[in-house]
């Protein structure tokens, strides 16, 4: 029984991270109908930015609320900028090209980031070594949120840590915020209009380029937040971390109905729990097979995902 409870907690914690990454995926897809495969790698860049800021702040200031906020703000701002640059120079020139072109570009950017960050590059600025690219080796992510046990039943049988709860609440909060943004604000209406048909939206005076750029910046900063929570949870950072989580988050988004915000959250939590139970009660080798099998079953039964709406294909 205790074991089961602990598995549920672990599964929800893993699902929370997938959910946060999936939100960004789903939002960009919702507007652009582009599966942004570089999303996971933007997340990775965000984690490294957070790592650098935490490093600059020094060991003493770790754990204080101010430093956590500063780390999140810096990392989210940096990723927003990166998202803007990627959209401006890689995707925008291809917007009128077949969708496959942008998709391949996305995969290219993903590989460029995840393998580019495996290079070692340092410059010497007035006597101090400044690392530009971190190199391939995994690094320990500093404990920017001091870990505290919030619940401990039966002498370590069931343990809940503060960061698991905090991450979960942040995921719910962001989902609600995003839902509000999309359906209740002017900007959200513009997003939906662009999503429906960006040419017509442009005719109606909606600044399409700006809306898409904003969407990318928002999605990328969400990725940064997700990445930081992921790094806090699993305590390490390495350049390939984004590939795997990105893929899983993509599966979660598709299960929930890609483009659907609460769907991404539900899909991600379901995927996290499903993986946890498979590993906990059978064999870890089955995890990915079951995760992707789950995807296939959902798509067979409901091709639009659990929450997605059926859309007539535009010809």
């Amino acid at each position: 029984m205790y074991g089961f409870l602990q598995h549920v907690i672990n599964g929800l914690a893993a699902g929370t991270i997938y959910a946060l990454v999936a939100l960004g995926y789903t939002m960009v897809y919702g507007v652009l109908k582009l599966i942004n495969f570089a999303h996971g790698d933007v997340m990775m860049v965000g984690v490294y930015v957070g790592y650098a800021v935490a490093f600059l702040l020094g060991r003493d200031s770790l754990g204080s609320t101010g430093s956590v906020l500063l780390i999140f703000a810096a990392s989210m701002a940096a990723c927003a900028l990166l998202g803007f640059l990627i959209e401006r120079f890689a995707y925008r020139p291809l917007r009128e090209k077949p969708r496959l072109t942008a998709l391949i570009t996305a995969i290219g950017i993903s590989f460029a980031l995840s393998y580019g960050f495996q290079l070692d590059a340092q410059v010497n600025v007035r006597g101090t070594q400044v690392t530009l690219l971190p190199g391939a080796a995994a690094r320990a992510f500093p404990e920017i949120i001091t870990p505290v046990e919030w619940l401990n039943i039966g002498d370590g049988e069931v343990v809940i840590w503060n960061r698991q709860v905090i991450s979960f609440l942040i995921a719910i909060g962001l989902m609600v915020g995003l839902q509000y943004l999309v359906f209740r604000t002017r900007f959200g209406r513009a997003m939906r209009a662009v999503s429906f048909d960006h040419r017509v939206a442009a005719l109606l005076g909606i600044p399409v380029d700006r809306v898409i750029a904003m969407t990318f910046m928002l999605g990328s900063s969400l990725a940064a937040a997700a990445g930081l929570l992921y790094a806090i949870k699993d305590t390490s950072v390495q350049p390939l971390m984004g590939l795997y989580v990105g893929l899983k988050a993509f599966v979660a988004a598709v299960i929930g109905g890609i483009g659907h915000v609460p769907g991404a959250l539900v899909g991600a939590l379901a995927l996290g729990l499903c993986e946890e139970f498979v590993v906990g009660y059978t064999n870890s080798s089955w995890r990915d097979a079951v995760a992707f099998g789950f995807l296939i079953v959902v798509l067979l039964l409901r091709p639009e995902g659990l929450f997605g709406r059926v859309q007539a294909e535009k010809v």
Binding site: Y244, E276, F277, V279, G280, S284
Partner: peptide
């Protein structure tokens, strides 16, 4: 006996099963 795959970063499921 539990197993994982290289590159995983979450081993809590296996460890929870071992803990018992």
């Amino acid at each position: 006996t539990e197993s994982y795959s290289k590159g995983d970063s979450d081993f809590r499921a296996q460890l929870t099963a071992l803990k018992k």
